[in-house]
Simulated scan of single mutants.
Amino acid sequence: MAAGRAQVGDPAAVAHLDPEFVTRVLGRIADRVAEAVDQMRTSRPIRTAIVSDRGRLDPAP
């Protein structure tokens, strides 16, 4: 929500977060997701979408 990728709850609750911190966190999340997907390798490329009960979690392509 702080990165503007989702509209969940009250945006004021994350307004105090430093944008640089948010960017670093999103990068770490992307790295961890890539590691997890890499561990589930298949013999051919597949498209993935990571979702939760609150919506899509991965960056939209």
Rank of each mutant, 00 (worst) to 15 (best):
D38Q: 11
V22R: 01
A36L: 04
A15G: 04
D31Y: 04
V8S: 04
A34M: 00
A12S: 15
G4F: 01
S43D: 14
V33L: 14
A13W: 03
E20Y: 00
L17P: 05
D38L: 09
M40H: 13
G27V: 06
V33Y: 02
P19N: 00
M40S: 12
A12V: 06
R24V: 01
Q7E: 13
E35G: 07
L26T: 11
A6Y: 02
A13C: 10
F21R: 12
V22Q: 02
P11Q: 09
L26M: 07
T23D: 14
A36G: 05
R44Q: 11
D31V: 05
S43F: 08
G27N: 04
V22S: 04
L17S: 03
D38R: 12
A6I: 12
G4Q: 02
T23M: 03
D31K: 03
A34I: 06
R32D: 09
I29K: 11
A12M: 07
A3R: 07
M40E: 13
L17C: 01
R41C: 09
A6G: 08
R44H: 15
V37G: 02
A2T: 13
D10H: 06
V22H: 02
R44N: 04
F21D: 12
D31N: 07
R41F: 08
R24Y: 04
T42D: 08
A3W: 08
L17W: 02
G27P: 04
Q39L: 15
R32F: 05
V37H: 03
R41A: 15
A30C: 03
